[in-house]
Simulated scan of single mutants.
Amino acid sequence: MATGKDRQKQLAREHHERQMARRIEREQKAKRTAIIGSTVGVVVVVGGIVGAVALLNGGDTPTDAAASPQPSASTSESASATPAAAPKGFDAKTSTCDYAADTAGGVVKDVGKPPAKVSVKPATKTLTFATSQGDIVVELNNAKAPCTVNSLEFLAKKKYYDGSKCHRLGSDQFPMLQCGDPTAKADGKSQTDGQGGPGYVMAEENLQGATYKRGVMAMAKTSAPGSTGSQFFLVYGDTGLPAQYTPVGTITKGLDILDKVNKAGVITPGPDGTGAPKETVEIKHVTISGKS
């Protein structure tokens, strides 16, 4: 017969197991906002563990920045992030963009919506992230991603990114640093990092032939089409992501900063090896310039 002390130990163990199960569930829900890539052989998620289709080793693959044959949340969770009405892409006839309300939930830093009227000139613009680690400079492809560039420029003018921290560092399989959640703590403890956004979403752009190799800046999204918001990822290696995330520009300065941050590693690695970087990258200010 079990003693009272044995029973106490059993109850304590069961309590601990329930706590761990709840913690895993919270992490899965908290980190769903990011990028999800799916191919026949791989599903990639930056910034969240979400359900997906298919795949490597015959199971759902939860990753924040790398494929990993671990169980993940159900597909119904990612489906709940689908906007009520997906925004339309750039209308070349009217030179307008569609920015739709984001109905997926999450934490919103509301600064309004960008103006619908845009211009594809100049063809390129220069974005500078003044960060705590130094300047990261990106040549934006305004000609092929005008709605995205217009959104970035609008958010920069509203100081939306000022004071925000890059919240997720990738892995060897998917080497990238994800930023753009103005509410992220990036302390290795927060359960809501990756949920922040501007309250609007837009269609993906510039996807034909898109690749995500070292030096690319691309926009994060959920599994739903037309779910691009304010979050983005900076690639410091070569990845095999499918062409689903707007490649908005090319990093022309600051790859050494990303390499340094990558070398330092993460604070608390998740199941896929990703997490908040030990070397904090805080965006102090963002400027975008360009001449016709």
Rank of each mutant, 00 (worst) to 15 (best):
L241H: 10
Y160G: 04
G41V: 06
K5Y: 15
G249F: 06
K117T: 14
A224D: 00
F233R: 01
D110M: 05
P242D: 02
V43G: 09
G196Q: 04
L140K: 02
L11E: 13
G105S: 09
T211A: 02
Y212K: 00
V120N: 12
G105F: 11
P114C: 09
M20W: 13
Q10D: 12
D162R: 02
G275R: 13
R7S: 12
A276K: 02
D162Q: 03
G209M: 09
V216R: 12
G134P: 08
S76G: 13
A143M: 07
P247R: 02
A84R: 13
A84P: 03
P175E: 04
A130F: 05
N142K: 11
A85I: 15
N142E: 09
Y245A: 13
C97D: 03
N141S: 10
Y160F: 15
G229E: 02
V149I: 08
T183L: 09
V137E: 04
F233M: 00
P175R: 11
T246I: 04
G188W: 03
R18M: 13
S78N: 08
A2Y: 14
Q191L: 13
A65L: 05
N141W: 07
V53T: 15
E279R: 08
A54L: 12
T124E: 01
N142Y: 11
A34V: 09
L127Y: 00
S78C: 01
V120H: 09
Y245H: 12
A34I: 01
V138E: 00
Q70G: 10
S74T: 14
K221V: 04
A130K: 10
K291V: 14
V45Q: 10
S289C: 06
K159S: 06
Y200W: 12
K157A: 11
K165F: 00
P175D: 08
E204D: 07
G58C: 07
K221N: 06
D102N: 14
S292W: 12
K158W: 03
S38D: 06
E204C: 04
Y160R: 01
S151A: 15
F90P: 02
G273R: 04
T124M: 03
S190G: 14
S164K: 03
T128W: 07
Q208Y: 08
V46G: 15
K5P: 04
D64A: 03
S227Y: 00
V266F: 00
R22E: 07
T268Q: 13
S119R: 11
S292T: 13
Q231N: 05
G89E: 06
D135F: 03
V44Y: 05
L55V: 14
A123Q: 14
F129G: 01
A243Y: 05
A79E: 15
G106E: 09
Q173C: 08
K291I: 10
D259V: 13
T103G: 01
A100K: 11
G226T: 07
